[in-house]
């Protein structure tokens, strides 16, 4: 984890077991998934820490214990870890069954399979009975890059936030994820926690104190424009705000980590104080955070408003960095979109 926080590459570390069959003759060969392409999640570690003092915590995954590092939990609490194989709906519903018996159940898999394949189990078995299931959708958005649309999750927020009694939250980096997980212990009802691919650029230098679900965090002040964003788009949005400052545009950046319940007061304040709101998200422009903010603004103060995400189409295939550049969701792209929006291009 330290390597990730330092922004270093771990590509020298590979999965796989030692043995004659595993001796590679060309050092450019790779066995298994390169660690650099794997999430160095603190997920399993943090949950194991929490479980040390909370016997209610159980962890489930669907054949992704290594990819999401819930393996770290298994090593420390093997009796409270369950790998359900490639059966996500069964995993989520079983998590609800465990939650009905007093456990707090964390069920983690790729966001596309957690939220999209699992949507009905989340609604019917977790949210409706108000059970403490925390469905963790990692590798959200298009962070799976060239794995393609089946592995992209650009609809999950739209689907999850229409479910009553479900808390929907996105963590930007490992420190914020720790805060989210700690806050999740006492959060009533079910949660959907959206994560990136685990090597998301750092936003929070330490675990944010006083983190509260449902309370947006203003990371940068400004009076000309507000960028409202969350998750993996937070870092590029902050970088864009710095670039905009050089162009004389003072930009407020709000981490709207909790999409539901939404901090409507922070949105109204931003509208009144900055007069222009740009929502940036790694999500289809329909149904996501942009739509959620728009729903607040329809009833609120007059403001210039623009959604910026992936257009209503299936994203291209490509490496994640290429996709972010293509859809202008990297810092230069966001900077350019903001300037166009304000007529300062």
């Amino acid at each position: 984890m330290a390597d990730i926080e330092n922004g270093q590459d771990q590509s020298a570390i590979f999965r796989g077991t030692a043995g004659d069959d595993n001796v590679l003759k060309d050092n450019r060969s790779v066995q298994g998934t390169p660690a650099a392409a794997m999430p160095a999640f603190i997920l399993g570690e943090e949950l194991a820490d929490l479980a040390d003092s909370d016997p209610r915590i159980v962890v489930l995954t669907a054949d992704l214990a290594s990819a999401n590092r819930t393996r770290d939990f298994e090593h420390r609490h093997p009796d409270r870890f369950f790998d359900f194989g490639i059966a996500e709906r069964n995993m989520i519903t079983a998590a609800a069954g465990m939650a009905s018996c007093g456990h707090i159940a964390y069920a983690a898999t790729f966001a596309s399979f957690a939220a999209i394949l699992g949507a009905e189990t989340i609604r019917t078995d977790c949210a409706y009975p108000k059970l403490p299931v925390r469905v963790i959708g990692h590798h959200s958005g298009m962070s799976m890059g060239f794995y393609g649309t089946s592995h992209h999750s650009l609809e999950d927020i739209g689907m999850m936030r229409t479910i009553a009694d479900l808390t929907v939250v996105a963590a930007a980096d490992s420190n914020q994820l720790r805060a989210v997980l700690r806050a999740s212990i006492d959060q009533p009802g079910a949660m959907y926690i959206r994560l990136g691919r685990g090597r998301d650029p750092q936003v929070y230098e330490r675990v944010p104190e006083n983190f509260r679900l449902g309370e947006a965090i203003t990371l940068r002040e400004g009076r000309d424009l507000t960028i409202i964003t969350m998750g993996a788009e937070l870092r590029p949005s902050l970088d864009a705000a710095a670039a905009l400052a050089e162009a004389g545009i003072a930009t407020r950046v709000i981490d709207m980590h909790t999409i539901k319940p939404l901090d409507a007061a922070a949105i109204r304040r931003a509208a009144e104080e900055t007069g222009a709101i740009l929502v940036v998200e790694e999500h289809n422009v329909t149904g996501g955070l942009g739509s959620a903010v728009a729903e607040v603004l329809v009833d609120g103060p007059r403001v210039r408003f623009r959604r910026h995400g992936v257009p209503d189409e299936f994203a291209l295939i490509g490496p994640p960095a290429g996709l972010y550049a293509h859809y202008r969701l990297d810092a230069p792209g966001i900077t350019a979109v903001a300037k166009e929006f304000l007529g300062r291009a």
Partner: peptide, 14 residues
């Protein structure tokens, strides 16, 4: 039946 699997696992843990 998935709910039942979860409940039975809870019983085992507890």
């Amino acid at each position: 039946l998935s709910v039942g699997v979860g409940m039975a696992l809870s019983g085992r843990v507890e």
